[in-house]
Simulated scan of single mutants.
Amino acid sequence: MPVSWSDSVDDVIGGDLTCALACLTPAGGAVVTSVAPIGLRDRERGTVGFTTSLGFGRKLERIRDDPRVALAYHAREHGVGDRTNPRFVLAQGEARFDPHPDRATLDEIARQSSRYLGEPRRGRFWDRWLHAYYEDRVLVTVTVTRVVAWPDLRAAGTPVVTGAPLPEGAAPQTPPKNGTAPRVDAARTGRRAARLPHVLLAYRGQDRYPAVVPVEVGSADVEGVHLRVPDFVPPGGRRAGLLAHSYRSQLVGLESRQNTGWLEVTDADAVYAPHTESGFRAPPQKTVLLLANGFLARRGLAQARKQGRIQALG
């Protein structure tokens, strides 16, 4: 039977302007990034979704290689639902996508997104400049295995679970051959993450679905970034992804900082050692943002085609 969810959870899934997507890596870790869900869900079929561009197709490659994903609905600001709804909602399941959507699908994405992102810019220049951003979009649909809803945005308290029962805490992972110590500047990672309002951690759960949890940044030094994590995060060491981000209305003025690395949780502390880093800061003006989105999507699409990554998607 399809997994369904309550009206209060549906308000979160249908209303949030952005959510965090976690995908698995071949090494057993997780990568977490922000995506635009634009209210995509079907309670009768038990699906949720989001959109992305082929020009930003790394996440699609990860989904192709392992379709198990998680979407964390973790922030109410600038959404269209009840902004006082305090729930942190995690939807886990298996994703699928068509890299060559038909015209009807693209039109439906445009209609759905306008409520959240504003009406698309039209005209001779914009139609050409934003072609890769608007026209080469992909709808990703996740068939839900489990929905977990905590009573507050810190993922504290007893959650309500629909679908598959929660598994036991994941066992510690084998450390990487190159060691677990930071490979990029951990103090800088901590400073950047601490000044952004939303910080999330992702790791592979015992049932091999990604888990995403909200965390708070404490101190940071050469040893790593000290985090305050929810009580249910399993002890021991494991590969994990970190996302710190902020956004404004219609996703203008985005800032995102992403890391992959090693998490070590003990009774006294949780320390994150970043191994890779990426990020961006988008301009706060809508017109400048669209110009940048058009450039990045066009460049990303051209690179993906040249490297054969688009063809490899199917």
Rank of each mutant, 00 (worst) to 15 (best):
E216M: 02
V217D: 04
G218S: 09
G218K: 10
G218F: 05
A220E: 03
D221P: 00
V222W: 04
V222P: 02
E223S: 01
E223H: 05
V225L: 02
V225A: 00
H226F: 02
H226G: 01
R228M: 04
R228W: 00
P230S: 08
D231C: 11
D231Y: 05
F232W: 13
V233W: 06
V233L: 12
P234D: 08
P235Q: 12
P235C: 06
G236A: 13
G236M: 10
G237I: 03
G237P: 08
G237Q: 07
R238F: 03
R238D: 01
R239V: 12
G241S: 11
G241L: 12
L242W: 01
L242I: 11
L243D: 07
H245W: 14
R248G: 15
Q250A: 15
L251S: 13
L254I: 09
L254V: 14
L254T: 10
S256M: 07
S256C: 10
R257L: 10
R257M: 10
Q258M: 08
N259F: 15
T260L: 08
T260Q: 07
W262M: 10
W262H: 05
L263V: 10
E264Y: 07
T266A: 10
T266M: 06
T266K: 07
D267T: 06
D267I: 04
A268W: 14
A268Q: 14
A268H: 15
D269R: 08
A270I: 06
A270N: 06
V271L: 15
A273D: 02
A273H: 02
A273Y: 02
P274A: 07
P274S: 07
H275P: 10
T276R: 06
T276A: 14
E277K: 00
G279I: 15
G279Q: 06
G279M: 07
G279H: 07
G279L: 12
A282T: 05
A282E: 07
P283Y: 02
P284W: 03
Q285W: 13
Q285S: 14
